[in-house]
Each structure stands twice: as C-alpha cells, then as structure tokens.
Design a protein around this nucleic acid. Sequence first.
DNA 1: GCTTACGGTAAGTCATGGCTAACGAATTGA
DNA 2: TCAATTCGTTAGCCATGACTTACCGTAAGC
Lengths: 102, 102
Amino acid sequence: MANELIFAALADPTRRRVFEQLAARPSSVTALARTLPVSRPAVSQHLKVLSDAGLVTVRAEGTRRIYRAAPDQLADLRDWLDRMWSNALNAFAEAAEKERQK
Amino acid sequence: MANELIFAALADPTRRRVFEQLAARPSSVTALARTLPVSRPAVSQHLKVLSDAGLVTVRAEGTRRIYRAAPDQLADLRDWLDRMWSNALNAFAEAAEKERQK
DNA sequence: GCTTACGGTAAGTCATGGCTAACGAATTGA
DNA sequence: TCAATTCGTTAGCCATGACTTACCGTAAGC
C-alpha cells in the first residue's frame, strides 16, 4: 500500500509538529527549527521524510528553501480512515443482527 | 494531544493489519496470529497497544477473548486530518492572494 | 483431577530511527 | 574575493520498540 510512507511520516510527534506548522504557513528550515526543541539538521531530516511521503513541497528562494504542506496526499489517509470506519460499522451491524436472531 | 496514542498505535504496519482484520470481523488472538507472519505473543502485545489507544475492545468468551474494532476513536484522527486540510488550503489561498496583489 | 487450548506477561535480542556534532556546497552582500 | 548565512549530508550514539522463547494462570472437556 502506498500509505506506508504517509503513516510512517506522521508517526513521529516532532514530524507532525513540523507538518502542522507548515499547514499553518510556509516556512524556511531555520525558522522551523527556531520554534522546535530540536536542532536544524533534525528538522532537515524530518523534512526529507515528509517530502518523500509527498506531504510537503519545496521552493528555493535565494539561499533559503521554503517548505509548504501539500494536502493532496492526505486524501489517501482519509480514504483508509473511511474504509476502516465503514468496515467496523458493518461488522458491528452484523454482530447485532446475529444477536437479534437468537 | 490525546491523538498521540492513536498515531503511535497505527504507525506500525503489523498493527494496522491487525486493526484492519478486526474492522472486517471480530476475532480471537490465535485466529489473528494464524493469518499474520508473527507469533501469538506478538499479536497479543499489539492488541494491548491498540486497546490502550481505545481502538479495540475485548469480550471474554469462554477461554477465548474476542477482539473488535472500536471505530469511535478514529474520529479524533479524522478531526486532525480535516484541520490540517483546511489549514493547508487557507495557507495556499493566502499565498495566491499575495501573489495576485503584486 | 488431568489434560488441553487460549492468552497475557517477562526476559532478552536485535533492528530501526531520531538526535547532535561536524563538514561541505551554494547564494548573498560588502 | 571574502565573509556570513542557509541547508543538506554524514557519522556515530543511544533510546525505543517489535519480536521470539519460555513461563504461568485460567477455562473447558475427557
């Protein structure tokens, strides 16, 4: 499943904070690192993971690199979520039906 | 954020497979282990994590314990998803607006 | 009671990955 | 050209966690 990269990317709390900040507003690597309790290289590595998962995009601006959240990939996550939801509800309905037939 | 347990629980691929199977149909621990490439204790440990996250519920049935998916907790995940989505879209719209004003 | 199936827990191993420190490349401005 | 800023990358350390083997408690069937 192609979702694997997305799940892995969003699994780490620090990485989620990076993504949440980028969803609020595009930002450079150093600006992100200033607001987080980790070093700049750490942020850079997290951004690589997010980028490989297609969750962020980059745009060079002079010597700085502006990262942005790319919400499209979240659609896969939503699809998985909806599928699980309806499956679970169906299973529950079936169980209730069996129960009723007794 | 209370989502932390949910993200952590769904981060592992094996654990997601366990949850997906339970979403399709309730099952015992041994039955789950038979369909997965890991041992029964491993499944048991995964179920504990899923249970702590509120993603599954248990029901004792004789000597067996039947696990079921509990879709309610997925709502938190959906909320986070929707928030990220709209934030990213807003940020994109603002950027487009600034671009247009030039 | 004795055995058998089921399942949680403990102990220990091993791979994964998140982090920092250090270095190198590229752009900007003096 | 030289210094300063911004980033990516690498090496290495260390904590986390996924897994198996072994063990113990418990409920059902002979």
